[in-house]
Amino acid sequence: MPGPAPLKEFDVKSWLYRADVKASPYLYISPFFLVFGALGVFPLLYTAWVSLHKWSLLSEQHTFVGIDNYTHLLHDSFFWNALGNTVSIWVLSTVPQLVLALLLAHILNNRLRGETIWRTGLLLPNLASVAAVAIIFGQLFGRDFGLINWVLGLAGGGHIDWHAGTATSQLAISIMIIWRWTGYNALIYLAAMQAVPDSLHEAAIIDGASSLQRLRKITIPAIRPTIIFTVIVSTIGGMQVFTEPLLFGAGSNSLTGGSDRQFQTLSLYLYEVGFGRYDFGYASATAWMMFLVIALAAIGNYLLTRRIRRAG
């Protein structure tokens, strides 16, 4: 009876083979998802659970309050103020940042002497830790002994109290963000620009197009998907700005982002509620609202840029 036994062995082997082909890829990528599940999804869901409670870190009792935290948040002037600040800092930082990045990338896309040095140099501001950048800029923008006011003084201007005003403080914070991220975005643009066929540029040059005309008519339409990508990424980043305003406001009122909360961002407000007042329920609700805002901003971005793409 030699028949069935080898057949069975063959079955097992082929089952193993099929299982291997089908299951192995999932097993290989599973570590990421397990870690993400433990450190990403679980906290996310747990935060949602906490946000439905009156939950002080210092108290034993966590009373279930339903969506009270959320309704309270919608009537919280600090929250809307922080949201407004976040949006205006985002606009102030992202628009100049991406325009500058485009111009820089366009210049570096030409043949330059020592182009590797220039290109690497672009990334240097991004390599410095955000805390270091924020501390240094905080000192540059000092009212009495800051370098910027010193230069303004030499030029005959008066000292600006950068921290006191809404516009000045948000501008200062935006400059920190622009400083850190312009080079990074320029490199991404540069990579995309290298893929634009030279023949298009050559033809335009023969037709007498200027450098700026080529940037507008050839480069930008060609790298539009990359621009959309950077806009979405900087939106997500811009909604979460935290360290810059925290350290810019160094002093006795650092958590409130200025005497009138004039530069308190959403993340900073979240931090004030969670780790200043230990009110975890309310902080969790804030975190979820922030998540919603970011998701809405990303969707809005996507729709807008898709329309632009169609129009283009």
């Binding site: 000192q139 009212r143 009495d144 921290h163 160094a250 002093g251 006795s252 009122n253 650092s254």
Partner: peptide
């Protein structure tokens, strides 16, 4: 008042 916020860089330098 020197109008300086306590623990700010201007305070430290002051």
């Amino acid at each position: 008042s020197a109008k300086i916020i306590a623990w700010s860089p201007d305070w430290n330098a002051g």
